[in-house]
Computed example of a mutant assay.
Amino acid sequence: MYGEKCKGDSQKTTVIFLVWGWGGTQPAQVKSASDLLKFLFSTRKIWRQFLNHTVELNLSHDQPPRRRVGRDEAVIAISALRIGFAISRHLAQDGAHVVVSSRKQQNVDQALAVLQGEGLSMSGTMCHVGKAEDRDQLVATALRHSGNVDFLVCVAGVNPYVGSTLGSSEEVWDKILNVNVKAPALLLSQLLPHMENRGGSSVVLVSSIGAYLPEARLGAYNVSKAAILGLTKTLSLELAPKDIRVNCLVPGVIDTAFSKVTFEDPDFWNHLKGCHGIQRVGQPEDCSGLVSFLCSPDASYITGESIAVAGFSPHL
């Protein structure tokens, strides 16, 4: 339905109704109230069918009520800072008990002070995910709360070297791949016995827009984040029979200390604006809603996907 004022008379409006569906297509011009009544009367059967069909659509499917992440469900969020902090807050606000971690105890303490101060169900522990003994402690902390883990969100990442791929030393390669790629897989293998019998568990890995659009000075880091895309696909296939979904968050340029090397570079930023139309630097909170959705029953038919939160699409 749309209206168009008649030329030369600002007080008159021609309304054209376009009705389609069960009765075909019937255009009609309505220039007065009596024309409108005649039109509605002549098409009453179509409207009745439309309304009946709408009621059937609403009532015929016996769907369970929508629910968010529940109070009896536990989440391990690997990071107490920046994006990890925003995700932890969102999941806890949705009703989950969230276990946060960081390689520095002060980061854990600060996150818990804020989030528990908001009345959210939180616990946490120091964890360097590249160390097996720290991963053991993280799992034990999560299991102490409810004896199970329903969701794993791996946000932790490192980049100790800003420079070219071939300029990266073996030590740099080992550190980046150990934390960014190996640790999520090894941690998930430890959690698998506690997740596979829960039904509807979810894993969210975190890659980077650099996996699609590499920044030359982040060579080895880009490679590690591209590996996360492959890990997501592979794990989604392996874990589908166990009713565990695996998806990937792909943040763009987010306002964190970690990303300053990109958004404080005018050449790189102008390239994003010029080629991709990006309008602003993203905020950590821009990522949290997607993760909460991917952990919810609303995403029960989504797995193996890598979803960019970047202000533009990096895909073809």
Rank of each mutant, 00 (worst) to 15 (best):
V179A: 14
S236G: 07
D134G: 11
W269D: 05
K45A: 11
A310P: 00
A220I: 12
I76R: 07
V99I: 13
H128A: 13
V15N: 02
S60C: 05
E170I: 01
Q283G: 00
C295V: 09
K38W: 05
Q279N: 08
V250S: 09
T43Q: 15
Q190L: 11
A96Y: 01
G230K: 10
I16V: 15
K260E: 15
Q116P: 03
Q26K: 14
L115P: 08
E285F: 00
G252S: 03
A140G: 08
V149P: 08
G147F: 03
R245V: 03
A86K: 03
P314K: 12
K233H: 13
K233V: 11
L120N: 05
H271I: 01
K38S: 13
I176L: 08
D267Q: 14
V162E: 11
V55N: 02
S292D: 06
D35E: 11
C127Q: 05
L40T: 02
F258T: 06
S60T: 01
K31Q: 12
I307K: 06
L205S: 03
P297N: 06
H90L: 09
I76W: 05
M126P: 04
V250A: 09
Q105F: 12
M126T: 14
E170C: 00
N197C: 00
G70W: 06
K12P: 00
S292T: 06
T14S: 13
H97W: 08
D72G: 14
P284R: 01
V100R: 01
G311M: 07
M126Y: 01
T43A: 06
T54D: 04
H315V: 14
G199Y: 01
E133F: 00
D243N: 14
S164V: 07
P160R: 00
V203I: 13
Y212F: 14
F151G: 07
L191Y: 06
N197E: 05
A33W: 06
P251D: 08
S42V: 04
A299Q: 02
L177W: 09
L205A: 04
E171H: 08
G163M: 02
L191G: 10
G304R: 02
L59N: 02
A77H: 02
K233N: 12
I228H: 02
H97L: 05
D9A: 08
Y161D: 01
T13W: 15
I244Q: 04
K225T: 02
I244A: 05
E73V: 07
V129T: 14
L59I: 01
L112T: 03
S306H: 01
A111L: 10
V19M: 11
A227T: 07
S168Y: 06
A132P: 00
K131E: 13
K233Q: 15
S101P: 07
F151L: 08
V75Q: 11
N270T: 08
K182H: 14
V162S: 08
A185M: 11
R71H: 12
W20R: 09
